[in-house]
Computed example of a mutant assay.
Amino acid sequence: MSSLLRISRLIDWINERVGRSVMWLVLIAVVISAGNALVRKLFNTSSNALLEIQWYLFAAIFMLAAGYTFLRNEHVRIDVLTSRLSARGQNIIDVIGILFFLLPMAVLILWLSWPIVTTSLATGEMSQNPGGLIRWPVKMLLPLGLGLLVLQAVSELIKRIAFLSGHGPNPLQKKSAAAATEELVVAIKAQREGTGQ
């Protein structure tokens, strides 16, 4: 179990880094969107490339942060029934959900999307809009995002089995808002110390 938990920590580290990097795409998307709106209002002109890059950034945020969202246990849940269960019961439900729903769905979509991605890459597919962008980078987000989600599902499965077998803490235990704020303050301080500010 200890070697599996090491693998789980590595997967968590990867998705943590990807998720924190993807957060910057939100700011970039907002700046591009605001700039495009201003140019359209002030100069009565626009760019298809700028419109499409907004869509691409949204796709990147959504797909690449899926594993990070699962890591943080912030995905959409229906807790009406499971909230009444014990921690053990909730983890058993999650194991069943990961094994029989999440992993099969993600792997199936990954498998079905791969030919679309490779065809787009091989043909150098371009947008049909004048001045639009190439399409294969945005299509590549689908297998990348699903790959990160599958990895995180494996990590979460390991953590839940570790909890059920008495080898780890409850992965479903939510951090309090104060703990999350303290974690953010520590991260900001560490970043400032690293940059010498």
Rank of each mutant, 00 (worst) to 15 (best):
L42Y: 12
I109F: 10
I92M: 06
W55M: 14
M126D: 03
P104G: 02
G147M: 06
L64F: 04
A178V: 14
E182Y: 11
I93H: 00
L99H: 06
E52I: 00
A177E: 14
R20E: 01
N170F: 10
L99N: 04
L10M: 10
D79G: 11
Q173I: 11
R84L: 06
R135S: 09
S176R: 09
L108T: 15
V138L: 10
F100Y: 04
D94T: 03
A37I: 15
G19D: 00
L71C: 07
T195E: 14
I96L: 12
G35C: 04
G19E: 08
L133H: 04
A178G: 08
L142K: 07
W24K: 04
I116F: 09
V185E: 14
S33T: 11
L121H: 07
R192W: 12
L157N: 03
G89V: 09
F100Q: 04
P171Y: 06
T82K: 02
Q173T: 13
I32V: 15
N129H: 14
R160A: 06
F163A: 01
E183G: 11
S113H: 06
E16D: 02
G19H: 03
Y56R: 08
H75S: 13
A29G: 13
L121A: 12
E52L: 05
A190P: 05
L110R: 01
N170C: 08
R135N: 12
L38S: 09
A49G: 11
D12Q: 09
V80C: 06
V107G: 03
R88F: 05
S47F: 01
A177G: 14
W114Y: 14
K159A: 13
V150Y: 04
L102A: 15
L64E: 00
R6C: 11
D79S: 05
D94F: 06
V39G: 09
L102P: 05
L51V: 11
N73G: 11
L184D: 13
S113E: 00
I14T: 12
Q128H: 15
R77P: 07
T118P: 01
F163M: 09
V80N: 02
N129T: 13
R20A: 04
R40K: 12
K139C: 09
S176V: 05
S47D: 05
H75M: 12
I11E: 01
M105Q: 14
L51K: 07
L157G: 02
S86P: 00
A180W: 00
A29H: 08
S21Q: 05
D12R: 00
V31K: 02
L27W: 14
E16Q: 08
D79M: 09
Q54N: 14
F163Q: 01
K159D: 11
L133K: 03
W114C: 11
L4K: 05
N15W: 00
I188L: 15
F163P: 04
M1T: 11
S8M: 04
L142V: 15
P130Q: 09
N91V: 12
R135C: 05
T82Y: 05
D12L: 01
S33A: 13
L141C: 10
V26R: 01
M105K: 07
A66T: 12
R192V: 14
E125V: 12
S113C: 04
S155V: 01
S46G: 15
G131D: 02
Q197D: 15
P104T: 02
R77N: 06
W13Q: 07
W136P: 05
H75Y: 14
I93A: 02
I158T: 08
A106I: 13
M63K: 09
L157R: 01
L42P: 10
P104A: 06
N15D: 07
